[in-house]
Amino acid sequence: MKKIWHLLTILGIVLVSLGTLSGCSSVAKKDVLKADQESNRITWGVKADTRLFGLENIRTGKLEGFEIDLAKAMTKEILGPKGKATFVPVTSSTRVPLLKNGNIDAIMATMTITPEREKQVDFTKSYFDAVQSLLVKKGSPVKNIQDLNKAGEVILGVSGSNSVKNVAKYAPKAKVLQLSDYAQAMTALKSKQGNALTTDNGILYGMASENPGYEVVGGNFTKEPYGIAVNKNQEPFRNKLNWALERLEKNGTYNRLLLKWFGNVKGFNYQEMKR
């Protein structure tokens, strides 16, 4: 009996100390903008599995995409021509913890600005106005989100993405399977684990361009403005990012990058997206 009490006491002590360890959030107190200017480097959390936005090139091992180019251009705006952009690949699940821990300075990873997220992080103004769509096999009877609002329909999404939350609103009867990243979700769609894959149109067009048997349908049932996320209390850094984004929009760099990545994507109206 005494031994059990002994054990329980230790259990209590360890649990309490672990609890305090995990409970305290450590939003970095330092000024990110100042630190980045000193080190001449901005560390971005980006996607590595999302065609057109951020994708790892198998041949070179380098990341490529609209967000990568935009992040590089913004880094040069902020730090000057010698400024360096470092990229850390993130997923929808790892990006916020990494930002809060200070492993990355900013997230530019197809992250929709939502009120829930704004409680935890700060967003810049939107740098890409995506809308949510569906990817289905060509010839599928599914034409829009309402078609999926039936018991037995399975929708694939990526865990941590805003689009899976919208599904609960627009097609509450469907079952949603959340996978860890877009590569898994696309693979699962191909192996018939679900009838449709939902996320933002830009990402879906990227997938459709690589998988000819699949098409984007469903129109645009929600608005998904992407913002760059930074930690709370980093006003100077956020203002600087907004300022850099505006400059790139004004001097035509933004439109040039848009044309480079989305100009040839079938079905994607890049003229509408010009700024």
């Binding site: 590595a48 994708l55 790892e56 198998i58 690949p89 790892t94 877009y182 898994q184 693979t187």
Partner: peptide
């Protein structure tokens, strides 16, 4: 799961594309 660039992750990148 934390995007460590090891064998499994690289295979996922390849078949994801």
């Amino acid at each position: 799961i934390i995007v460590l660039p090891e064998l499994m992750y690289h295979a996922q990148i390849i078949y994801g594309q």
